[in-house]
Amino acid sequence: MEAYKAKSIDEVIRLLSQFEGKGKVIAGGTDLIIDIRNKKVKPEALIDISSIDELKTIEDLGSFIRIGAAATFTDLVESSLLDENLYGLKKAAREVGSPQIRNRGTIGGNIANGSPAADSVPPLLCLDSTLILRSIKGEREISLRDYYEKGFKIGEDEIISAIQFKKPEGRQILSFAKLGLRKALAISRLSIATLLEIGGDNRIKTIRIASGSLGRHPLREYKVEEFLIGKDFNEEVINEAVLVLKEAMEERLKGRATLPYKQRAVERVFKDAIYGGLERLKVVEA
């Protein structure tokens, strides 16, 4: 195996092309080093991107925010751009693993590794994020939703260079809640992110919901969104939404041993996300 500590994006994509699919990007290494040691992957070359500054910046582009793929969870926790309405993304980062893992693990690695439990993904799905990919052929963008729903692939010669999304508007608040440790049995892991806005008439004006560990990959819960949009916001409606969510889970996870437990647990996680977000909104608006 060869090893390169790259200094620029250009160097990374040149090396990836040179190794024709047999080179692998390493960022924090918190997933990959374990996979290499277990011989799950056997790259011919490792290309380190963890100290490329242009991949680590978190930028305010006016109505958009762009997060470099090699930004660590600690970078997200420490970024003032992710306070206020974007609190759910910061919360997801803050609850990852341990300080040691947050200091190394990156948002790009979290997405590229493809775990159904990747904590940064549900909030990013609620934000309708776009992945910006780079290869020697140039730059292209794919929506994170298509990446999962349409099975779009990141090419072997491509890296994720950044993740970009539109800032929440007005009283929209992004929230996140999760249950269970990563190493806990898969049965007891689940996460929910929500983007909620309640209008002056108390009707639900914006609602996006995404889940982690409730399917083969993180996903948007469209049926629950459709049920909630335009409804009067009250406890009863939220309870009904939980039933819609349970039904959607039933369809997706039918026959799985984990279903009954997850159906029971999902209620609290969902409510934690919704009500936790509204609590946060009070702080933001105070």
Partner: peptide
Amino acid sequence: GECGACTVIMDGEVVNSCLVMAFQ
């Protein structure tokens, strides 16, 4: 990455030295 016994401080931050490649 689970136990922290291999913790060192790298450029001011704690890391698990079992999850960093030497060349990094």
